[in-house]
Design a protein around this nucleic acid. Structure first.
Lengths: 233, 233
DNA sequence: TAGGCTATTGTTAGGGC
DNA sequence: CGCCCTAACAATAGCCT
């Protein structure tokens, strides 16, 4: 019995995932058939799965290809919508890349500052009194906290500034702060770009209440003034 | 409140159809999204409707085109499946055409017989006694019944033998006997052809219990022996 | 693995506004 | 038309075989 409401996320358990797939894909096709019959509309649905060499297709491979062809070849607004989508997608990708880049830059700068301070401290260690030593320790501790704060956005990945962008290829149950922020950024752009905002995008939640600041929708994310380190003198 | 279980057929009422469409297409896209998320599979869904100049597409026009392209270009079994489907479809179309053709032929022959009998009756009317007159009337009546019986398969269309095939373009609530028979024939062929019969086609019901005989799966439906008039001397 | 079962959640037809 | 509501209907998660 459906004891609990399942969360909308990738099902880890293999057999459960397969079972759910089999049930749901069948339902989906049925729903498509019902919609087409009840409302007299043309429709098609295609699902690729690792459980079958052939994709699941409704109403038939031929019909699907025909329907899609009609959709692809339409020269009017559909074409424009496609171009618009390509444009938006590129814009989102570019913005995301800039966000990640700047985030890494922040991290690197803070680590360099920390190293500088450590180096200075070590070099002048013999000349410091207890008070100065304590201050140095606290200062270094602050820098460490700042670094940790920055690193939180990357969560799991190694804190090396030169590392590639978090390659979270496998589905994860818990998104990193960076991922959440990127998603929020994408939603902002989509909302700004879309002529008619979709319902699913209207409510842009910000889980976890992180304080990573997202820029407004400006065109050049290269400008570091948008990303100025909030805690650097 | 959903007081009654709706029948799976085209909704006549315009506003109700539109409302149902709006609700169901939204649900369909949601289901597609859930399936894709839960099971980590690629999927797309496209619905054309008269209620919107643009088709409803999930997950996006671009993705849909990409997914379809992948499906279309696959050279292996998918291609074979397409060819197989084309072959089957042609076979079904040919069989259906032959059925309609023969049905019309039957109708025409019966009408000609009726006319012959009427003509003979009229010409020899003055020589007939009461008994012969009664027999003639009953005979003509039988022929009329036979014609009506044949015409039942066409139901609404004009009974002219030269008329084009029943052009039931608009959705109808009640299928004609001919349509039901043709559907049954199609299902027979699909069952016979399909390597793995689909669940939805296994139960080929024959609503109304009509007595129109469907041929077995032979290759030449032209042979009138399969369609020999059941009530001709 | 695939079906069958059922408690539970999800969908939606029909109304009202 | 679109939106909200609710009861009736449908889908399905988790078990079991």
């Amino acid at each position: 019995m459906a004891r609990k409401k399942v969360k909308l996320q990738w099902i880890m358990n293999d057999t459960a995932r397969r079972t759910t797939y089999k049930k749901r894909v069948k339902s989906l096709m049925k729903k498509a058939m019902e919609l087409s019959t009840l409302c007299g509309v043309e429709a098609c649905a295609i699902v690729y799965s690792p459980y079958d060499p052939q994709p699941e297709v409704w109403p038939s491979p031929m019909e699907a290809v025909r329907v899609i062809g009609e959709f692809k070849c339409r020269p009017d607004q559909t074409k424009k919508r496609l171009d618009q989508e390509i444009y938006t997608r590129e814009r989102v990708a570019k913005a995301k890349e800039q966000v990640v880049k700047q985030q890494k830059k922040n991290l690197r700068m803070e680590m360099e500052n920390l190293m500088d301070q450590c180096l200075a401290g070590v070099q002048g260690l013999q000349h410091l009194n207890i008070k100065e030593l304590s201050d140095l320790t606290w200062s270094i501790d602050d820098r460490l906290k700042a670094i940790n704060h920055q690193m939180e956005f990357f969560h799991h990945p190694a804190p090396q500034p030169g590392a590639t962008a978090a390659p979270v290829a496998v589905p994860v149950a818990q998104n990193t702060h960076l991922e959440v922020a990127l998603e929020s950024l994408e939603n902002q752009i989509l909302l700004d770009t879309a002529p008619m905002p979709r319902d699913s995008l209207v409510s842009v939640a910000y889980p976890g209440g992180q304080d990573m600041m997202l820029p407004g929708l400006y065109d050049n994310y290269e400008d570091p003034s948008f990303w100025g380190p909030p805690f650097f003198p």
